[in-house]
């Protein structure tokens, strides 16, 4: 399960977190070590810069074509590259989640710590690790997609390499913990960003797809600024866009605290000029 999410995640927030692995992508020779590809894709997707800020919006369309919107600002801080990270997500719409805050302390070696702040009750709520595989605020993305999935939870193989992509296949180390049997990734050889991830269920049927729709270089980091997740069973999809994104804004760990849950760090959340 996690894997799935994570992958998805990679795409999604990846955008946000565009990575600095630029040097690797520029090399002429193809990579042949799958672990190296996975590691670089993980960094490219989630660990760009030391930190980052972005505004995000999602257009959620269900199988009947009904639309909903979500909008939030996200702050990210890396404790270490490919290691622990913090995410702070402050919602601005719709009305029923406005001013709600979601915060994750992502750990590589143990369960993530996650909090939700509900402004109506002034309540700081702790969320258990389990439900990270469920919908993130009603979208087709999962909670875990916001903070990334640990690559160590899957086994990867390099299926093929063509002019543009490394094609990988991943299978979960603990199949019972995820809802997919496997997924494939097409990793851009130049940016090392996964451009398409497709999930297959136990019956061998493709049921979920995450695609990067637009990549832009921001402060030298190739960054996914638009992506889409499609639920092929229901026909629903969520389009996600990133805007006003900035890396290396100088965040520090103390921003990711209960203080910020109750009293949002407005200077950091403010749109960069």
């Amino acid at each position: 399960m996690k894997t799935l999410l994570q992958r998805v995640n990679v795409l999604m927030l990846g955008a946000l977190m565009a990575t600095p692995l630029m040097s690797a992508p520029l090399q002429a020779a193809d990579l042949t070590d799958v672990q190296q590809i996975v590691d670089q894709a993980n960094l490219a997707s989630y660990y760009q810069g030391k930190d980052g800020r972005s505004e995000v919006r999602m257009l959620i369309t269900d199988g009947q074509g009904r639309e909903q919107l979500r909008q939030f600002t996200i702050l990210r801080y890396d404790v270490a590259d490919a290691g622990d990270q913090y995410f702070y997500v402050a919602f601005s719409r719709p009305a029923d989640v406005r001013d709600t805050v979601f915060m994750v302390a992502k750990h590589v070696d143990r369960d993530d710590d996650r909090w939700l702040y509900l402004p109506g009750l002034d309540l700081v709520k702790r969320i258990s690790a389990g439900d990270k595989r469920t919908s993130f605020v009603g979208s087709h993305f999962f909670y875990e997609d916001v903070s990334g999935r640990n690559p160590a939870e899957d086994n990867f193989e390099l299926i093929s390499t063509d002019d543009s992509f490394y094609h990988l296949k991943a299978t979960p180390k603990d199949p019972a913990s995820v809802e997919f049997a496997s997924y494939t990734l097409a990793v851009d050889k130049h940016t090392m960003l996964p451009m398409k991830i497709e999930y297959t269920d136990a019956g061998g049927k493709l049921y979920r797809r995450v695609e990067a729709l637009e990549v832009k270089e921001i402060q030298g980091y190739p960054t996914v600024i638009s992506n889409k997740v499609s639920d092929l069973r229901s026909g629903g999809q969520t389009l996600m866009q990133f805007g006003f994104m900035k890396y290396d804004i100088g965040l520090d760990e103390s921003v990711f605290s209960e203080r910020s849950l109750r009293n949002p760090p407005r200077d950091w959340l403010r749109r960069p000029q």
Binding site: R57, L69, Q71, A95, L239, Q241, G243, R270
Partner: peptide, 26 residues
């Protein structure tokens, strides 16, 4: 709201207004 997604959404008003200092909700 949905209409704002049509063109280049990032320059659109709907992004700007949420950053403005005050706004009426309820």
């Amino acid at each position: 709201d949905s209409a704002d997604w049509g063109g280049d959404a990032w320059g659109g008003d709907s992004w700007s207004q949420d950053q403005s200092a005050s706004r009426l909700h309820g």
